[in-house]
Amino acid sequence: MFVASLLARFMHGPTKKHMGTAKRVLRYIQGTFDYGITYEKGKEARLIGYYDSDWSGSEDDMRSTSRYAFNLGSGVFSWASVKQSSVALSTAEAEYVSAVEATAQAIWLPFVLSDFGEEQVGATTILCDNTSAIAITKNPVHHHKTRHIIRRFHFIRDALQSGEIDLLYCKTEEQTANIFTKALARDRFEYLRRKLGVISTKHLKGRVEI
Score class of each variant (00 low, 15 high):
118 E>L: 15
69 A>P: 08
42 G>E: 09
138 K>E: 10
62 M>I: 09
37 I>D: 08
209 E>K: 13
111 F>G: 15
190 E>C: 05
180 F>K: 03
115 D>T: 13
155 F>A: 00
148 H>D: 04
154 H>T: 01
196 L>V: 04
61 D>R: 09
160 L>R: 05
118 E>M: 15
59 E>C: 04
130 N>V: 09
93 E>K: 13
106 A>L: 05
82 V>F: 07
31 G>R: 03
115 D>Q: 15
175 Q>S: 08
135 A>P: 01
153 F>D: 00
145 K>G: 02
100 V>G: 01
177 A>C: 02
162 S>C: 09
158 D>Q: 11
201 T>D: 10
174 E>F: 12
90 S>C: 13
5 S>W: 13
118 E>C: 15
77 F>V: 01
61 D>W: 06
123 A>V: 06
86 S>Q: 14
149 I>R: 04
199 I>N: 00
205 K>A: 12
29 I>K: 01
180 F>S: 07
58 S>H: 04
129 D>Q: 09
126 I>Y: 10
196 L>C: 11
188 R>V: 09
69 A>S: 07
154 H>W: 04
139 N>V: 07
124 T>Q: 08
137 T>Y: 02
76 V>A: 11
69 A>R: 00
60 D>W: 03
48 I>V: 10
39 Y>P: 12
148 H>R: 06
157 R>F: 04
152 R>L: 01
46 R>M: 11
190 E>W: 01
164 E>R: 13
57 G>M: 02
33 F>D: 08
97 V>F: 06
8 A>S: 15
48 I>G: 00
87 V>R: 08
207 R>A: 09
116 F>M: 14
35 Y>L: 01
169 Y>C: 05
156 I>V: 08
91 T>D: 10
186 R>M: 05
18 H>T: 05
4 A>I: 15
100 V>A: 00
138 K>D: 07
38 T>E: 11
207 R>Q: 11
115 D>C: 13
169 Y>I: 07
3 V>D: 12
61 D>I: 10
43 K>C: 12
117 G>Y: 08
75 G>H: 00
163 G>K: 04
16 K>Q: 11
106 A>M: 06
82 V>R: 12
202 K>Y: 03
85 S>I: 08
34 D>V: 02
114 S>T: 15
120 Q>V: 11
73 G>H: 07
79 W>A: 08
71 N>H: 07
38 T>H: 14
187 D>H: 08
140 P>F: 05
92 A>M: 15
146 T>I: 10
104 A>L: 14
